[in-house]
Design a protein around this nucleic acid. Structure first.
Lengths: 301, 301
DNA sequence: CACCTTGATAGGCAACGCCTATGATGCGAG
DNA sequence: CTCGCATCATAGGCGTTGCCTATCAAGGTG
């Protein structure tokens, strides 16, 4: 059975006339006769009572036609639904973002995203790198903004911008007197985030593996960490985009010698079909952050 | 777009795997690949994210698939509905019956009909001949039991049995003394039915056109007519099947000389597709009434 | 590095749907 | 009563489509 046949059935039922139904369906009358006849054979039921005047739907036809209408309506709804999904730059887009980036990046890119991709409905999802990768691989996310390279061959990524690290100090800390700070100097009393944050690993790598082992306090979030530094418990290393928040928290910031930092990347599944949307989002973020990267580089000199 | 494609879509979505979906659909994997690809082109939407491991439905696919399910379900409902309508001897059968026949015939044929055609659901409709013919022509009836020939070429009929007329008299009527009655004798004080009843015309024809002109009383139904006769207002002519009811009403019945009567026919549209059901019903009625016809003939001797 | 699995592609074949032309039937007007 | 005009059905030819098998390309795994 074919949807075309059901449309023919609806047409003949509506017109009660093969010729007019054929014209309305855009086919010839014999075509309609043959197809309706086939349908009748398949169903084992006479659908129309033919006479030289008209083709009257039988009771069986009237009982069957509601289902035909349902089927045709469903396929038309399907088509309409597909129509609205055609634009890869439109619709829901679930994007994961790591916690040390989300609160500082999202406010910067919301407006540009809305302007560049007005039909896109980004749904941010904040979690740590491993969780994001798992959700990405299980199709629960469309893309993710990370500060690390992605492994496996099933995922690919593209660098969007470099985010320098800054030394964050209590205002009365000895290092606050310097214009720039060496990473090694921080390692003495550096505080880091709790397990799972990529920033924790990056900070420890930048300042030497043994750093922070003495610190029993491990903040579960960047704001917490900044408050702990402000309270004088030690120093830390913060990503550049959090500079404003750090200053609001009363921290003193200093560029790091050698300008260490992390690269923010957008990652997606290699076979993800809306790659166009991924690239477009990447473009918007890279464009928006290009001035930031330059400014940070300038400030570090 | 084709229903087959929608089934393929459902299969791949269910299995998330082209090979297994192909096997489940009873086609080869390339067939499925090509058809799904075509569907994607038609819809302008990527439905599956292919990898070497699996074919994961995209968000667009998941949004579209409900409609596909609806369409497939509707066509299956259609098929099931048609299945149940396949037997022309099953289901509703709207049969018109004239009022001077219905109350006396129906009790006789209900049981035989039920036995011979257990799946048939007869729906009797009682009305006068003209109304029945109109409803028959407008497809509001499937067949009609009449006492007249049908005109036009769009209707056909088949005789089922002959129903003799009987003279119905008040017990104290002079004619009640005779064993048989001549029609001409009745015309003096015959009472007839109101306009529209074919029995009225037949009675008047049997007894001469001018008969009953003097009678201002024209009963609207046969029971009324019989009661009027019983009350002594005159005589009448009743169809044989009503004999029992007439006797119950206290009338004296006498055979008519020359054994006039009417032929009960079943009529239907020439193109009516359930002719088999019509014939089957006709067979049952003719069979049931064959003994009656013989008995009536015997009684008239 | 070979092998296995995945989905995609190519070529050939049969079936199907469509067309035009024609037939059969019924109805109405002259 | 017959001719003409409707109706729907049938026949033959043609192009498209869907399907198959065989093969390819890519990824992952021993």
């Amino acid at each position: 059975m074919n949807l075309r046949d059901l449309r023919y059935l609806l047409a003949v039922t509506e017109h009660e006339h093969f010729g007019r139904a054929a014209k309305a369906s855009g086919v010839s009358q014999p075509t309609l006769s043959v197809q309706i006849r086939k349908l009748e054979d398949q169903l084992g039921v006479i659908l129309f009572e033919r006479s030289s005047k008209q083709a009257a739907p039988t009771a069986a036809c009237l009982q069957v036609i509601d289902h035909a209408r349902d089927a045709v309506a469903a396929t038309e709804a399907l088509l309409a639904s597909a129509q609205s999904l055609r634009d890869p730059l439109a619709g829901r887009f679930r994007i994961g973002i790591i916690p040390t980036l989300a609160p500082y990046l999202l406010p910067l890119i919301f407006a540009p995203l809305r302007e560049a991709l007005p039909a896109l409905e980004p749904e941010p999802w904040e979690d740590q790198t491993d969780a994001l990768l798992e959700r990405l691989r299980s199709h629960q996310l469309d893309a993710a903004l990370l500060a690390t390279e992605v492994d496996g061959p099933d995922l690919v990524s593209r660098a969007l911008f470099d985010e320098p690290f800054l030394a964050a100090l209590p205002p009365d800390h000895p290092l606050a007197a310097r214009a720039t700070v060496a990473e090694a100097d921080l390692s003495q009393d550096i505080l880091v985030l709790s397990d799972g944050h990529c920033l924790r690993d990056q900070a420890m790598e930048a300042c030497g593996q043994t750093a922070a082992l003495g610190g029993a306090l491990r903040a579960s979030s960047l704001p917490t960490l900044m408050n702990m530094v402000a309270a004088g418990y030690g120093t830390t290393l913060i990503p550049g985009l959090a500079a404003g928040a750090a200053q609001d928290a009363g921290l003193t910031l200093r560029p790091l010698e050698g300008r260490p930092g992390r690269t923010i990347r957008i990652a997606w599944r290699a076979h993800f079909p809306r790659r166009i949307a991924v690239e477009a989002i990447g473009d918007v973020i890279a464009e928006r952050l290009s001035s930031f990267a330059r400014g940070a580089a300038a400030g570090a000199v």
